[in-house]
């Protein structure tokens, strides 16, 4: 196995499971729809809440799709093969996460203009929202990957994984929504964006390592 052949196989796999992508997009949309229906559908409330709603929905959609990231690899013995392949497991993990980010998060990003129209997001805060999504959804994947690897050997690991990962998502959601909130009142928003970038780089270093440790511990 080489990194390239691994990437090729993972691409095929993601493509064969494209229904998952559709599912997570639908889930994302449904969560967004819940808010106007459940709380308040007036433009006054929605325009204020839009970025928070989109962000919560995105985080939930990513969490649910990341949960089973390594499940199949665990059950069919692929994780063992990663470990004996002599390749660096953190890099394999990173390749896999990057690929899944492309397939799951990009559609969400592409939907964000439509949703921000539907939720009456003020025009001046769309680009800040988009940038925050761009910068921070990779961190959501990276952190979610740790949770997924930690619970990979459990049959019913879903809730546990949420319990572990959601507290780690809080800062990301806070900074991401404060980007748009600052933009809405005309304040500069580069500081929270920069922090989101910093969180991304930290997770980029920490997450593959931790995920690899958990994978190694789970396989045996």
């Amino acid at each position: 196995m080489t990194y390239v052949s691994f990437l090729r196989a993972e691409c095929h796999l993601v493509w064969r499971r494209k229904q998952n992508m559709v599912n997570s997009v639908l889930f994302f949309l449904l969560v967004v729809v819940l808010f106007p229906l459940g709380i308040d559908a007036t433009p006054m409330f929605l325009s204020k809440a839009a970025s928070g709603i989109i962000w919560c929905a995105a985080a939930l959609a990513i969490l649910t799709s990341v949960e089973s990231l390594f499940k199949e690899d665990y059950h069919d013995g692929s994780l063992e093969q990663w470990l004996v392949s002599g390749l660096s497991v953190p890099i394999l993990v990173l390749i896999k996460m990057a690929l899944h980010w492309l397939f799951i998060a990009l559609p969400l990003l592409l939907l964000s203009p439509v949703l921000s129209e539907v939720l009456y997001l003020p025009d001046n805060s769309f680009w800040p929202l988009f940038m925050s999504l761009m910068l921070a959804t990779p961190s959501l994947f990276l952190l979610g990957g740790i949770g997924s690897a930690v619970t990979v050997s459990l049959r019913q690991g879903g809730v546990l994984m949420l319990l572990i990962v959601l507290p780690l998502y809080l800062p990301i959601i806070i900074f991401a929504t404060s980007v748009t909130k600052a933009a809405q009142v005309g304040l500069p928003y580069d500081a929270p964006l920069a922090i989101l970038g910093a969180i991304f780089f930290v997770s980029l270093v920490v997450s593959p390592l931790m995920t690899a440790i958990s994978i190694k511990a789970s396989v045996n």
Binding site: A9, H12, L13, R16, E72, D76, G77, S78, E80, Q81
Partner: peptide
């Protein structure tokens, strides 16, 4: 190994 890492979807 016992599970030999063959992907069912490929």
């Amino acid at each position: 190994g016992h599970q030999y890492g063959v992907k069912r979807l490929l």
